[in-house]
Design a protein around this nucleic acid. Structure first.
Lengths: 138, 138
DNA sequence: TATAAACTCTATAAAAAAAATAGGGTAAAT
DNA sequence: ATTTACCCTATTTTTTTTATAGAGTTTATA
């Protein structure tokens, strides 16, 4: 399951996407809209900024804003950023690979093979669907 | 990511599947093979038994054994049993549905729509692949 | 140039979930 | 009768997730 952090990130991105006509959006506006702790949300927005998805402006009249077009923000990127691996096993993760500690031979692991398939199907959707697809519905 | 509990369950099932010529297999044999705590594994095997996947025999010469044919044990069943929902959001879970607390309108939630797709693709594999597919490779 | 609005950063704490442990009890084969 | 091995409930430990705290920095505007 996706963590709250990731869900909050999607909420924030949705909010920012819906208010693109504004130059900036305050953290507080988002945190009030979804009932997210101001400080917790701050950390999340900061991560999104470091990842090049958001920009921010300090001082009076400042706030956060989308720096990318919604279609250029794949869902997979957001999930990986906040939640880590998308794969169901560390040994099939593309971005966070680790061998399974109790696995003797990855080559001969049947579970590994199936989980590669699952990962690929998940990525097939999550890499190709973007923030734009989410905004459309709202 | 799958929990250790679920991975242990798959290991145990694989071991039992590979030793079907024996009448029973001792917990200890499995726990030693994979370095899993005896007691922890006991809980897992018990759950698999309650779910009708394993049988057990008490007393000397007793132990656990597969009660179903490997092909009749879909991977999805094992994951749901030990890990809970397969879906990435509670609001798209077939077996563990819950509304997302901060979601105002599920019908209009774009994330919901995408996650339904992801769930269906995952299930398409996990419902159709079984223990038999894992055993094949080993 | 003062000041208030708003972002930045590091550290810590609280809560929840996952993993592991403990130990007595019960059933059954020999 | 006794040993082997499953059964059950409760508790503890560890890890991860979620949330909080507070001081510091930047910047717009009056």
């Amino acid at each position: 399951m996706l963590s709250k952090k990731t869900k909050y990130a999607f909420h924030a991105l949705t909010y920012l996407g819906k208010h693109r006509e504004q130059k900036t959006v305050l953290i507080q506006d988002i945190s009030e809209e979804y009932g997210i702790s101001h400080k917790f949300l701050e950390n999340i927005l900061l991560e999104l900024k470091k990842a090049g998805i958001l920009g921010s402006k300090k001082g009076k009249g400042g706030g956060y804003y989308l720096i990318k077009e919604p279609i250029d923000v794949p869902l997979s990127k957001v999930i990986r950023l906040l939640d880590g691996p998308i794969a169901l096993l560390p040994c099939v993760s593309l971005n966070y690979y680790e061998p399974c500690v109790e696995c003797k031979n990855e080559e001969k692991c049947g579970l590994n093979k199936v989980m590669i398939q699952v990962r690929d199907e998940m990525l097939n959707i999550l890499e190709n669907k973007s923030l734009a697809d989410i905004l459309d519905k709202e």
